[in-house]
Design a protein around this nucleic acid. Structure first.
Length: 427
RNA sequence: GGGAGCGUAGCUCAGAGGUAGAGCACCGCGCUGUGGCCGCGGUGGUCGCGGGUUCGAGUCCCGUCGCUCCUCCCA
C-alpha cells in the first residue's frame, strides 16, 4: 500500500492554513493585550512529569499518553497537554524570582492516543494561558474573560456557546467531599453503570459527569461539591462569580462539572459549543494551586485554561472562499530568450519592491495562462517584443477586465500599483 | 476500549455476478499576443488492502487498514 499519514494525524493543507494563521494571529494578539507572554516548552518531556503533574490515574496519562524509551532507556512522553510543561519551566527557571505574577501563553501540538473522530485527533493543537502567582478570584475571572473575549473576537455566535463554572475546593475539601460523595453513592452503587462502579473506587468525582441516564438520575440528587467546601474556598468562589458578573460574563453553575485532570483545585470552568457534535468542549480550565509545589517549586497558586485549535477552526470553517493572493502574475507571450529574461527581471523587481508576484512557467496557450492568472492574482502583466521595444508593459486588472500600458517603474511601485488598479476600477 | 455506517478518477458520486462510468476539475483544439461562455477531443482507476466463493467479483463472504458517527474521554 502507498505510504500515508499515521492514523489520527493529518495534514493541514494550504487551503486551510490561511484560516489557521488567522486564528493563531488573533490568539497571539489578544493574549498579548491581556499581558501574557509566549512560552515554547518542548514537545517531549520526561514521562514522569505528566504522571506526577496530571495524575498517574487519569485517563490522559494512564491510557492515552505516547510513552517511549529513548536510546538510553529513559522514559519520555509526547506531551498530552501543556500546563505541566509550563509549570515545570516556571520552576526550573525560578521564574517566581523575577516577578510576583507570571503570565504565560502557549500554542502548539499535543498528543493523545485516542480513537479519532470529528474534533478529536491524536495530534491536535492547543492554545492556553497560565497565570502563576496569585490566589485573587479576580484573576480567575480575568482568565475566563480572556476566553470569552477570544470567541467574541473570532465572531462566534455567543447564543450557541455555554459557559459552565463550578468549584471543587482545595485539596482538603476534595478529600472531605470524596467521603460525602462515597457515602451518598455507595448505597446506590447497584444503579450505576459498570464504569461508574469502577470510578467509585478510583476517582468518585468522575461519576458526576457520567452521561449514562441512570447515573445522571442518581448524580443529580448527590450533594454538590460547592456545598461542601471550606469557608475560604466558598468565599473565593463567590468572589469569582461576583467578578464574572461585574465583567458582564453570563455563566451557569454546574455541580456536575468536574475536570479530568488531577491538578485542579477550586475554580473549574468550561466553554462548550452546540455546533461541535459529541466533542463539544471548546476550551476548559481552572485553578491549580498545588501544582507548582508538587513539581518542586514554592507554594504558588495559579489559574489557566486551554482550548482546542481544531475545534475553533471548525466553527469558523463555513466562510472558505479563496481569493487571489498575488498582486501580479507575469506572462511571457513568446519563448524568445530575451522575453523570458525580461519576464524574470520584472518579476524579481516586483518582489524586491515588496509586491507578491509570480510568473507563468508552464508554456501554454496565452488565454490559458490568463485563466491561471485570474485564479491567482489581482493583475496580469504581459511581456513580449512590443513591451521590450517600448520599455513599458501591458498591465491588466483581472477583476475589472481593463488593460493599459504602464511604465516599468510604475509596475514595481506598490503605491502606483494601488493607484493604477483603483483608477482602472473607477473608469 | 465497546458499537454502527462508509471506502470506485484530483473532487462529488453512479454502477447490486458478465467489456469500469458521469458531472466537475485538468490538458489540447476551434480561437497563432489576451480569461470567465460555448463546442469538440484527450489525460487520468492495482474499484482501500489481503484472502475466499465462482467459469467470471467493483458487486457475495471473511479478514485487515482507513474515514465518519455514537459510546468513552477530553481541547
Amino acid at each position: 500500500m502507498r505510504l500515508a499519514s499515521v492514523r489520527g494525524m493529518r495534514d493541514i493543507l494550504p487551503a486551510e492554513t490561511g484560516l489557521w494563521q488567522g486564528v493563531e494571529g488573533a490568539i497571539r494578539e489578544l493574549f498579548g493585550r491581556y499581558a501574557y507572554r509566549e512560552i515554547r516548552p518542548p514537545v517531549v518531556e520526561l514521562a514522569e512529569l505528566f504522571a506526577r503533574g496530571v495524575g498517574a490515574e487519569t485517563d490522559i496519562v494512564h491510557k492515552e499518553m505516547y510513552v517511549f524509551p529513548d536510546r538510553k532507556g529513559q522514559m519520555l512522553a509526547l506531551r498530552p497537554e501543556a500546563t505541566a510543561s509550563v509549570v515545570r519551566a516556571y520552576v526550573e527557571h525560578a521564574m517566581h524570582a523575577g516577578s510576583d505574577l507570571v503570565k504565560l501563553y502557549y500554542l502548539g501540538p499535543m498528543f493523545r492516543y485516542e480513537k479519532p473522530q470529528m474534533g478529536r485527533q491524536r495530534q491536535f493543537h492547543q492554545y492556553g494561558v497560565e497565570a502563576i502567582g496569585s490566589l485573587d478570584p479576580a484573576l480567575d475571572a480575568e482568565v475566563a474573560d480572556l476566553a470569552a473575549q477570544l470567541v467574541a473576537d473570532l465572531g462566534l455566535d455567543r447564543a450557541r456557546l455555554r459557559f459552565r463554572v463550578n468549584t471543587i475546593g482545595c485539596a482538603a475539601d476534595r478529600e472531605g467531599y470524596r467521603g460525602v460523595l462515597l457515602s451518598h453513592l455507595g448505597p446506590r452503587a447497584v444503579g450505576l453503570c459498570s464504569d461508574c462502579r469502577r470510578r467509585l473506587e478510583q476517582n468518585p468525582l468522575r461519576v458526576l459527569d457520567c452521561k449514562v441516564p441512570s447515573c445522571r438520575e442518581i448524580v443529580c440528587e448527590a450533594p454538590s461539591s460547592a456545598d461542601h467546601v471550606c469557608s475560604a474556598c466558598a468565599e473565593h468562589f463567590e468572589g469569582f462569580k461576583g467578578h464574572m458578573e461585574a465583567l458582564g460574563l453570563s455563566y451557569e453553575q454546574d455541580a456536575t462539572l468536574v475536570r479530568g485532570l488531577d491538578y485542579y483545585t477550586r475554580t473549574v470552568f468550561e466553554l462548550a459549543s452546540e455546533e461541535l457534535g459529541a466533542q463539544d468542549a471548546l476550551l476548559g480550565g481552572g485553578r491549580y494551586d498545588d501544582l507548582v509545589a508538587l513539581l518542586g517549586g514554592p507554594e504558588t497558586p495559579a489559574v489557566g485554561f486551554a482550548g482546542g485549535m481544531e475545534r475553533l477552526v471548525m466553527l469558523l470553517h463555513r466562510e472558505d472562499r479563496e481569493e487571489p493572493e498575488l498582486d501580479w502574475y507575469v506572462i511571457p507571450v513568446t519563448d524568445d530568450p530575451e522575453v523570458v529574461r525580461w519576464t524574470s527581471q520584472i518579476l524579481a523587481a516586483m518582489r524586491r519592491a515588496g509586491l507578491a508576484a509570480d510568473r507563468a512557467y508552464v508554456r501554454k496557450a496565452l488565454r490559458k495562462s490568463l485563466q491561471v492568472a485570474a485564479r491567482k492574482a489581482k493583475g496580469a502583466v504581459f511581456v513580449g517584443p512590443e513591451e521590450i521595444a517600448s520599455g513599458a508593459a501591458k498591465a491588466r486588472d483581472l477583476a475589472a477586465g481593463v488593460e493599459r500600458v504602464v511604465s516599468l517603474a510604475a509596475l514595481v511601485d506598490p503605491d502606483a500599483v494601488r493607484g493604477q488598479l483603483a483608477a482602472e476600477e473607477a473608469s
